[in-house]
């Protein structure tokens, strides 16, 4: 029994490492794609890793109190916790993590957890721009969680299970069994919510990556920032894996995973490079209107057509 747990934790560590490194390289790859759209060359592939090492090797770091330390820690705990309950490779004992019955609920809870911890940490920093970023980020999160939750409810009803592994298992046997084709309405609602989740334009006002109110991480620097950067790569990749599992049939190998997650990410990028930014009130109104209606429609569709 004990040996088994050690084995599982070791496997999870391996998954964590692979997903983080994959997330970092994919971040650079996506940045380069955006740069190509803008007619530039873009950052080197290793730039995200060098950035993390650079912030980690800063000699000075000041603190604003204990909660300020815990903000990034909670944030990365949210990322790691989310990954811990998402089976990464279907059918692989090594890369299925701690997935079990009801893990979908836990994962959705964990996706909130990091944001809330970050809100506490950024609030402790005392910077007004951090508070503005937190207010914007949490309100936008509340808005996009509604269509996402509706869509998740729809597929839970459809497959009659709360286990991600079983949802993936139900989609095996060819592309026509993917949720994308069996329940396209739920996928539409979830992908619209995904645009808000990734934080690319038009929903990037809460991060505002190059402007003076940078958002929640205004005061975070040095090692704190390197934690946040790591989490950004890890959490981004984890969300992609979750979406792939729920809607696009999961993956049986790393190559399939890479191709599918990249394709899902490209949806957000294609929208992001083409559309200007929403103000926060506009983005909240957007999420509460069409994506929410689509989400409700997906539940109705599941009840009418799929559930017997």
């Amino acid at each position: 029994m004990d040996i088994d747990w050690f084995q599982k934790i070791g496997n999870f560590g391996l998954t964590l490492l692979i997903v983080t490194v994959y997330g970092l390289f994919m971040g650079a790859f996506i940045e380069r794609i955006i740069a190509k759209v803008q007619g530039r060359v873009g950052i080197p592939y290793t730039q995200p890793i060098i950035n993390i090492l650079q912030t980690l090797t800063r000699r000075t770091a000041i603190s604003h109190g204990i909660m300020f330390y815990l903000g990034p820690v909670f944030r990365i705990a949210g990322g790691v916790g989310t990954l811990a309950f998402v089976p990464v490779i279907f059918g692989s004992e090594t890369f299925s993590n701690f997935s079990g019955a009801g893990d979908l609920m836990l994962v959705i809870y964990f996706m909130f957890f990091g944001q809330l911890g970050m809100a506490l940490g950024a609030g402790e920093s005392g910077h007004p721009y951090a508070a503005i970023g937190i207010a914007r980020g949490l309100s936008q999160m509340t808005a996009y969680e509604v269509p996402f939750a509706l869509s998740v409810i729809a597929i839970v009803l459809q497959y009659d299970t709360l286990s991600i592994t079983e949802i993936v298992a139900a989609q095996q046997g060819g592309w026509q069994h993917w949720t994308l084709f069996t329940n396209p309405i739920a996928v539409a609602a979830a992908m619209l919510a995904f645009l808000g989740m990734t934080g690319y334009s038009p929903f990037d006002i809460f991060l505002a990556p190059q402007e003076i109110p940078i958002g929640p991480p205004t005061e975070f620097h040095s090692a704190y920032l390197s934690l946040l950067q790591t989490n950004r790569a890890l959490f981004g990749a984890t969300k992609l894996v979750l979406f792939m599992n729920l809607f696009f049939g999961g993956a049986t190998g790393w190559v399939e995973l890479a191709i599918k997650t990249w394709a899902i990410y490209m949806v957000a990028i294609a929208v992001g490079v083409a559309f200007p930014r929403f103000r926060i009130d506009q983005s909240i109104r957007f999420f509460f209107k069409i994506p929410t209606l689509i989400g409700i429609a997906s539940i109705v569709y599941v009840q009418m057509a799929l559930v017997r």
Binding site: E31, A35, V41, G42, I212, T218
Partner: peptide, 22 residues
Amino acid sequence: MTARFDANRIGVAGRPTPRQAS
């Protein structure tokens, strides 16, 4: 930062807050 000079190539990026800039 624009297409003509593209300082991102050589690892230069802008950070908006003094805490993070070097």
